[in-house]
Nucleic acid binder design. Structure first.
Lengths: 243, 243
DNA sequence: CGGAACATTGATTGTGGTCAACTGCTGTGG
DNA sequence: CCACAGCAGTTGACCACAATCAATGTTCCG
């Protein structure tokens, strides 16, 4: 894996300026940056702060089960504001890098004052958390009652929403087909959709047998029939009746 | 069921002033109320607005499965600010009253300006959504990898967090025991923890056989050993190994 | 190459969904 | 008052299916 020398300085990644895409005034931006510190993490490392801006990579929040059951209850992607603070007593759950990550970690003591001082930032912050809340509601709906194949289909469509996961080029050419670069490992994907890695593997194979996807490499798959995949994701494969 | 005369005027419910408990200036409060309208809903009715303050009752957000699988992907309780807006194209999912509900429905066109104008409201709003986000993450963790008995234990402890669900009196007397008034039906509870009503019934019976709870009435149960219930909720009942 | 990490495949079994029948309760109306 | 309908919840029998465990395969490094 690249970038194993975590804290060491290195050339700026092209996507590192995702921060510049956030719509806010320069003044607000400067004020935010004044109370933050950029860090680089490798896969597996815990986030140093409960709040930050994810300028590159994927972060997963793990819940706390007393035994070591792996699980990923929420995903953050490049361009997301992260705010995991809560009023509740025990701060259970922990955020970890699922890929190599660039993070602008905020000083949680100071960032609230910055938010309060800048109306545009407050609006942006609310919009971000609100969207993540909505995404998580959808995800909960998947976990509540869907079959593994429906969950995986749903997760694939969700990953497609982030441009950095979509492989350019082949996309337009093949009509409705889209080639996806899965940013996370099977293990984490399985944890996210609430099944075991073996099941993910079996479901991938099933989808490929049905010509709906094509597994090109371990983490590169082509969605060949988006419409059919969406139909499955919306509940098109309920469990068989007992008869 | 009481209050079947939905829109008809009636005496103010004691808990209707939960709104007064929100920490904000009078000016902010007046400004909010100027852009909102109080409504009363009975069980099953959809919320008239994507944003509001829940002054009494329980609201559930249902996801959208193409077949009619019931599910409740998020719960709101008395005292919660509700903001279900999202940038995403299709506004899937729908909020419905799971009990009789009193709601101060906000005008979604105007409420953002009110938030922008009042710093205290912005801070409050962020804190609320952030907390709901955190609660939902915990819930996702439950759904991802826990067994039905663990999920139900977790849900019971979650419901205990809202004082209106706790039956006063017997609570203090019995030491660690707490009597809970379940605000929602078995069906909705099952949908929330991602199992079928039959399973909820079986798990309740199992918990009662183990003397951890006592089902006093259909919707009144006594948690007799909170510590043991919490141990289960945290992952104390994994599925048996195959051997 | 060798080795570790990641991923897949196969055989087996526990278990929660499914369906169906039943109980208990409440309100309605004759 | 009982009869009845309607709804919420429970119980039982059955079995599809995903978790388990084990072994093998693949990829990616040094």
């Amino acid at each position: 894996m690249m970038w194993t020398n975590g804290t060491q300085a290195r050339a700026v990644h092209p996507s590192a300026d995702a921060f510049a895409l956030l719509e806010m005034s320069d003044e607000t931006r400067d004020d935010m940056l004044a109370h933050s510190s950029p860090v680089q993490l490798e896969r597996g490392q815990a986030l140093p702060s409960l709040a930050g801006f994810l300028s590159d990579g994927v972060v997963g929040v793990a819940g706390a089960a007393s035994d070591g059951r792996p699980l990923v209850c929420a995903l953050f992607h490049t361009g997301d504001l992260i705010d995991l603070r809560r009023r509740a007593r025990r701060p259970q759950g922990e955020a970890r890098a699922l890929t190599a990550v660039e993070l602008i970690a905020f000083d949680v003591e100071a960032i609230d004052a910055v938010i309060g001082a800048h109306q545009d930032l407050a609006a942006l912050w609310i919009e971000q958390i609100r969207d993540q809340f909505a995404t998580l509601r959808d995800h909960c709906a998947d976990l509540s009652c869907k079959t593994p194949i429906e969950r995986l289909a749903s997760a694939l469509l969700e990953l497609r929403r982030w441009p950095e996961n979509v492989v350019a080029g082949a996309a337009k050419a093949q009509g409705r087909a889209v080639t996806l670069r899965l940013p996370i490992l099977r293990n984490d994907l399985a944890g996210y959709i609430g099944v075991k890695p073996e099941t993910v593997s079996r479901v991938f194979r099933k989808l490929e047998e049905e010509k709906l996807i094509e597994i090109q490499r371990r983490n590169v798959i082509c969605l060949k029939d988006i419409a059919a995949i969406r139909r499955i994701a919306n509940g098109g494969r309920p469990r068989a009746p007992t008869r």
